[in-house]
Simulated assay, not measured.
Amino acid sequence: MFGFFKKKVQAGPLTERQIVAVEPPQPSFLKKVWQRVDSASPLSDDLLRARLAEAVAWCDALQSLDDLRAGTLRPSRFHDGPEDVDVCELGHNRQRQLHDRKLPVDYQSPVVTTGRFMLYFPDENLSDGYAEIVSRGFFDVDNLPAYDTWVSLVPEDGSPRMSGRRCLLCYVPASMIELADAGIEGNPESCIEWLDRLNLPVRPRVQALTCPTSRRWILR
């Protein structure tokens, strides 16, 4: 079963934790987390928070690069993107694995993070392969972050419809930040970038739903 906890957090980095048991989300809610959203409606904060929580719980439990791209998570087929169907299938698979492995997930706000968020812009990708080499495989030849880290596709302009560039929000665990940063710094087309360096509507949404434990990665 999932583990559920509620944390009392002071402003800024996590400085105090008061952990008390809370009721787990209803199965009906968990089923909705990775359902495809109507293109005319934005993803609600409750659903985005749940996606963030599950991605953080999974990625923070990874021990090394060798744990990336678990076969049990892999979407059945990749589209040119990836597309929302790939992200939702990945999310369903990850949610099931979190349950089977009894990894605790904190669905309460804010989601406490030790890593860093990044965005991938598939429409800008040139498939040069450099990021794959310098990140030791964290990115693939198409500069796509390992699917374990995917959180959600988000619209660049904040509108419900994907009218601008497609953006894939990802969570990089603390142990892999240096490798991911090497790939980002050497990426000529800027199709991968840290969220805290971008002024996009998704940034304040993630900021409101998460609490970084290091001042270095606080989204201001």
Rank of each mutant, 00 (worst) to 15 (best):
M1T: 05
F2N: 06
F2C: 08
F2P: 05
G3W: 12
F4E: 08
K7D: 06
K8P: 00
K8L: 09
V9Q: 12
Q10S: 11
G12M: 07
G12H: 09
L14S: 08
Q18Y: 04
I19F: 11
I19A: 13
V20H: 08
A21Q: 13
V22R: 07
P24V: 01
P25D: 07
P25W: 01
L30D: 05
V33G: 02
V37F: 02
V37T: 14
D38N: 11
S39Y: 14
S39H: 15
S39A: 15
L43H: 00
L43C: 10
D46R: 02
L47Y: 12
A50M: 05
L52I: 11
A53Q: 01
E54N: 04
E54C: 14
W58K: 04
Q63I: 07
L65C: 08
R69G: 04
R69P: 00
G71R: 13
G71Q: 12
R74W: 03
P75A: 05
P82W: 05
P82H: 09
D84I: 10
V85Y: 08
D86L: 01
L90M: 09
R94E: 00
Q97T: 05
L98R: 08
H99D: 14
H99Y: 14
R101W: 04
Y107F: 15
V111C: 06
T113W: 03
T113R: 04
T114F: 09
G115K: 03
M118H: 02
L119G: 02
P122K: 04
E124M: 15
N125G: 12
L126I: 15
D128C: 13
G129Y: 11
A131M: 04
S135N: 13
R136K: 15
R136P: 02
R136G: 10
G137C: 08
F138C: 08
D140T: 13
D142Y: 15
L144E: 03
L144M: 13
L144H: 03
P145L: 05
P145I: 06
A146H: 03
T149L: 08
P155N: 08
D157R: 07
S159W: 13
S159Y: 13
R161I: 10
R166S: 15
L168Y: 01
V172R: 01
P173C: 11
M176I: 08
I177E: 14
D181G: 10
D181N: 15
G183V: 10
E185F: 11
S190L: 12
W194E: 08
D196H: 09
D196E: 14
R203F: 06
R203N: 04
R205D: 00
P212V: 02
T213H: 14
W217D: 00
